[in-house]
Design a protein around this nucleic acid. Structure first.
Length: 866
RNA sequence: GCCCGGGUGGCGGAAUUGGUAGACGCGCUGGAUUCAAAAUCCAGUUCUUUCACGAGAGUGCGGGUUCGAUUCCCGCCCCGGGUACCA
């Protein structure tokens, strides 16, 4: 009988579910191993064959770790809040909870077919109140915390209040919005309203008027990583810049630690590099330039090259800079006002599209170079960003291309300050060389000149060393329905948190999912969306206090979900977001598998929340995932992206119906290295199907299961141990494509040897069981085992069996292989050399001459140099 | 522009520390089995040249180091990803 994959796979799916084979132990003396996949957003179109690629790879590794005796946590869940379900709801009136539920059901069916070793008892669903109760709870902690720069950690807001009561805010070094200075006496005299307003500037979850990416079509704000090329990532709608009052999270306070932590995790270099660039650290100085006609007024610039200050021939302010109006002379007032109006009217898209267009206006004012008193004109231009540094730069056209372009366009002087600097065709930003035209820095190397200038700036009191980061605080509110409600109500416009024991604050019913007529978010439609704090419950609108109408963004739940999986279904699940016992046993994720597209979104926020929760003492680690692998994308066979739009989607269900789940798993791995993008290949699956049938035949004679208990011979042992060595090594390197070929080699060899011996076939089925678990379980059962193969110990390599009696040496002349020479394995170097030179073929190449040199690498090669 | 990856047969890819380039699979060619097909099995398959034995070339291109380079170094070209006035 041929292998009936349909029956076998169904049988094992059911048995694994019934026996809870992959349930992680909660109290275990075994070492733990945590394998996590990025959980999917359950979309309406279901999974295509590209989606499970990473899940298959992580599943193989999870199974391998089980064979090695680890207590493996390998969970799965759903990132269920999100825009598509809401867009669908707006169009159809169908509640997103219902469509989400249906989509989850479909996802689960598809996932189950593939034979993953997930522990479903721990599944999470971010849109479930049982889960988002804790997302809201973490938000409450973020609200009641501040960032203490002196201690370099997040702390409870009470330590800040204590500090204010003792010394006011003068001695406090916090990551905060600008707050006017006050003393302890002042603080004590403030009203509650004033105190709360001040504290809001310090909270890690704070509210502030910020310039946000507003998407009118979606009716919401978007985070920077949700905007791609000036349009929304989802839907491709135009995005404009708008000033709005929004909730933000103070991730920028963690910038340095987010950067430093990258050195302690085993993530791909490219991913770390993306995050480093996104965080964008630059070390330099702030230097003050007094204004010529008002020396008390100083413009502060940020520069990473203070050594080039003698090349600063003009100064540029962002059009939004607070002093533009004040310093502009009457003569240039109209021109400057026109330019400011022009830049305001430009959308983000236009700005990006016209990035090369050089525009600007002269203010008529001059600044004094604080080092040499030279007067330089002050311009405004939108190539200087208001939101970065100080919103003003000293322009050094000889060393900065943007300044060079600007100077060339407006005919401003360009002064080289480094010997050999060529500024005829463009700026020359060399970081080596000797300074010139630079007064006391002349003749000094760039690196030393930077140090010397920093010292001078600090001595003269005209500036300070300064580190800037590109990383902006994360806008945390969305004007949408399908997200976590903020556990916040407003008393006199001041936000207050809802008591922790009253959470979750569940999403209210609304008649429609659109914004209100007044332009309020959909939650503005809820009839009962006010809070009575004394009673601790929702009340009719008009009573109590209004509740926040925005909801949290899609990445809220995914920033901490990995912790929730650690909680088994025990009682403490309702008491804490994650218990101390659970987190001290499971600790960090050991292997995280997911797409690189989350580099600047999820993966940054996930690290940020972990650091925050660590600071507050909830977690014994501050990096969530020790190792991370980015699986590549599977493209359609035509090389395009797999998408409904192109009609080139391959559904795993169809592949499984035709070839089985084991074949799908093997084929996806066999396509190539896990991190690489690669096209799907429908034909290629025949190869792995054939392999599975051949494997089956190894255990069967004329369709009847036949295995012998005879002792294996040398060749058989060598074959299986070669496979053990190769596959064990491949597992540790996540090289799952090469292990598939190792299985094929072993099965081909054992078929040739007509081997049906238990001592060989038992370890073989264990080796294959991570990749092709269904067939392996069935063979294991036929071999007489009652228990699942998934806990069978991994076969042990015995190197004795790999050794050969003889070695075939390739003999090359001048590096070109000419013939083979078989020698006993224990032959000495000299014996190999002598045999090679005496070989009849050697004579032909030597042509009677003596070789110049003979190189013998024992066990490897012989090279004869003529 | 800048920063990361990558470039190997008709195709996907292998070669882990510098040591026989092309494992394994797909495709293709020929054969066995079969009434026929499916399935299975056997042989071949980098290119050029040769009836063949063999010989020559060959890992994007050009140089270098080395007895020996897909692997290390220098300079270019192309493809993919990230980022974009971040001073």
């Amino acid at each position: 009988m041929e292998y009936n994959f349909l029956a076998v796979e169904k049988e094992w799916r059911e048995r694994w579910a019934k026996d809870e084979t992959f349930k992680a132990e909660q109290n275990s003396t075994k070492p733990k191993y945590y394998v996590l996949d990025m959980f999917p957003y359950p979309s309406g179109s279901g999974l295509h064959v590209g989606h499970p690629l990473g899940y298959i790879a992580s599943d193989i590794y999870a199974r391998f770790k089980r064979h090695q005796g680890f207590n493996v946590l390998h969970p799965m869940g759903y990132d269920a809040f999100g825009l598509p379900a809401e867009q669908y709801a707006i169009q159809t009136g169908q509640h997103p909870a219902i469509t989400t539920e249906e989509n989850i059901k479909r996802y689960r069916e598809q996932l189950d077919l593939i034979g993953f070793s997930f522990d479903w008892s721990r599944q999470v669903n971010t849109s479930n109140p049982e889960f988002y109760r804790w997302t809201q709870w973490i938000f409450v902690q973020l609200f009641h915390s501040w960032y203490n720069k002196k201690e370099d950690r997040a702390e409870r807001i009470q330590t800040l209040i204590d500090a204010f009561e003792q010394n006011g805010n003068l001695q406090v070094d916090a990551a905060s919005d600008e707050a006017a200075p006050f003393t302890a006496e002042d603080w004590k005299s403030f009203s509650e309203h004033d105190r709360r307003s001040i504290l809001l500037k310090y909270r890690i979850a704070y509210r502030a008027e910020t310039v946000v990416n507003w998407c009118p079509a979606l009716g919401t704000v978007l985070a920077n990583d949700e905007v791609v090329n000036g349009v929304s990532e989802r839907g491709g709608h135009p995005v404009e810049q708008k000033k709005m009052m929004q909730w933000s999270l103070r991730i920028s306070a963690f910038a340095e630690r987010l950067l430093e932590g990258l050195n302690r995790v085993d993530w791909s270099d490219s991913l770390k590099e993306i995050q480093r660039n996104w965080i964008g650290k630059s070390v330099g100085a702030e230097i003050e330039f007094p204004i010529k006609d008002d020396v008390n007024k100083k413009i502060t610039v940020f520069t990473t090259r203070p050594d080039t200050i003698f090349g600063a021939t003009f100064m540029v302010l962002a059009p939004e800079h607070e002093w533009v109006k004040e310093i502009t002379t009457a003569e240039h007032a109209d021109e400057v006002a026109d330019y400011v109006a022009y830049t305001k009217g430009r959308s983000e898209r236009e700005r990006m599209a016209e990035a090369k267009k050089i525009t600007g206006a002269f203010t008529g004012a001059y600044a004094k170079n604080p080092i040499n008193e030279q007067e330089i004109p002050i311009w405004i231009a939108d190539y200087v960003l208001a939101g970065y540094g100080t919103g003003a730069v000293m322009a050094v056209p000889s060393g900065d291309q943007r300044d060079w372009d600007f100077a060339t366009h407006f005919d401003l002087p360009i002064v080289p300050v480094i010997e050999g600097q060529d500024v005829s065709e463009g700026a020359d930003d060399r970081k080596d060389g000797i300074l010139m035209n630079s007064d006391f820095l002349n003749g000094i190397k760039v690196t030393d000149a930077i140090a010397a200038m920093l010292k001078r700036v600090e001595q003269d009191g005209i500036g300070r060393r300064k580190v800037n980061y590109k990383l902006r605080d994360a806008v945390f509110s969305r004007q949408r329905y399908w997200g976590e409600p903020f556990p916040i109500y407003y008393r006199n416009d001041i936000p207050y948190t809802i008591d922790e024991d009253k959470l979750p604050l569940e999403l209210p019913a609304v008649d429609q999912f659109k914004p209100t007529e007044d332009g309020d978010p959909p939650l503005g439609r809820a009839a009962k969306w006010n809070w009575d704090n004394a009673a601790g419950k929702l009340v009719e609108n008009g009573e109590g206090h209004p509740i926040e109408l925005s909801t949290m963004p899609g990445w809220a739940g995914s920033s901490w979900y990995f912790l929730r999986y650690m909680m088994a279904g025990d009682a403490s699940r309702d008491e804490v977001f994650v218990s101390e016992e659970a987190v001290s046993y499971w600790k960090q994720v050991d292997l995280y598998m997911g797409g690189a597209e989350h580099a600047t979104g999820h993966l940054l926020y996930f690290r940020f929340w972990t650091k925050f929760l660590h600071d507050l003492g909830f977690l014994p680690f501050d990096e969530p995932a020790k190792k991370l692998i980015n699986q590549g994308m599977i493209q359609a066979e035509d090389g395009q992206k797999m998408s409904k739009r192109y009609g080139n989607v391959v559904n795993p269900d169809d592949v499984i119906a035709e070839h089985g789940a084991d074949a799908l798993r093997l084929h996806e791995m066999f396509l190539g290295p896990i991190e690489m993008h690669k096209p799907w290949n429908t034909k290629g699956i025949e190869g792995v199907s054939k392999f599975l049938r051949k494997l089956w035949r190894l255990y069967h004679t004329d369709g009847v299961f036949t295995v012998s208990d005879d002792a294996p011979n040398k060749n058989e042992l060598k074959s299986i141990h070669k496979c053990i060595e190769k596959v064990s090594d491949d597992m540790e390197r996540f090289s799952f494509n090469t292990s598939v070929s190792a299985f094929m080699v072993a099965v081909n060899e054992l078929s040739d040897l007509k081997c049906n011996k238990r001592a060989i076939l038992e370890p073989l089925s264990i080796l294959i069981s991570c990749h092709a678990p269904h067939i392996a379980e069935e063979l294991w059962k036929k071999l007489g085992h009652d228990a699942s193969i998934s806990n069978a110990p991994w076969p042990k390599l015995n190197e004795e069996y790999l050794k050969d009696d003889s070695i075939v040496y390739p003999v090359s002349f001048n590096g070109k292989t000419r013939f083979q020479l078989e020698m006993p394995a224990d032959s000495s170097k000299d014996a190999v050399e002598a045999a090679a030179l005496q070989h009849e073929q050697a004579q032909k190449w030597l042509e009677g001459n003596a070789p110049k040199k003979v190189i013998v690498v024992p066990g490897r090669i012989v090279n004869i140099v003529l």
